[in-house]
Amino acid sequence: MTPLLCVQGITKRYGAHIGCTDVSFDLYPGEVMGIVGESGSGKSTLLNCMAGNLAPDAGQVVFDTRCDGPRETISMSEPERRMLGRTDWAFVHQHARDGLRMGVSAGGNVGERLMALDERHYGDIRDKASDWLGRVEIDASRIDDRPTTFSGGMQQRLQIARNLVTGPRLVFMDEPTGGLDVSVQARLLDLLRGLVRDMGLSAIIVTHDLAVVRLLADRLMVMKDGHVVEAGLTDQVLDDPQHAYSQLLVSSVLQV
């Protein structure tokens, strides 16, 4: 089977400081990969390099596109990469404000990607937006409200709807539950689990929260100081960590 995403040797330096170094892995359709580490581990740098938001100093990211087969995305032209970012790829930011247009209604936010892909029927666009609001458990009556009137959890769910409306195959998530109340996090994780399963999504999730990866990720990479120190099945890495840092990380989590 062809990997959906083939990451090879991604390296990014900030002067003498290592952001991330020589990261490689393959991601297959339907797999969810978690990347954990503490602040400064390089996980966000890695995510942004893969998603095309940062230019890495070295490495390749090959994505299996629908029309043209495997394509290297770092050397893609900007229009192509931006198109990829609107269709097959999605990026969920930690802060909903970075991923939403706060001055546009919920329906407009969800419909924007559709309109960017030349959909020109107002009624259809509105129906699809409504449908998606339902799927992320936002009441359909809020379709014309601005996200500034939404709670943090609702804003995050709106961001997810906005990203998933075009049926992407790969979703990048940067701390999707960061900053949310615990009960809100639980609801969001339930939702993500369901969507990942129902839509057959592949995802790469960066987080410092081990509970999030245990719930959502099939595979796990542990990062420290820009290096991947351990990788494997999520439950195996969390229950039987081999590397000293992984063991430290796992043992530091408080059992409530």
């Binding site: 209604s105 329906g107 419909g111 924007e112 960017a116 014309d144």
Partner: peptide, 22 residues
């Protein structure tokens, strides 16, 4: 400028969408 050069005009229709919804 990027939107014009890349012909990314989805946002323009968002404005019209907002008008109709309001």
């Amino acid at each position: 400028r990027k939107m014009h050069s890349l012909e990314e005009y989805g946002l323009m229709h968002v404005k019209l969408y907002e008008d109709i919804s309001r």
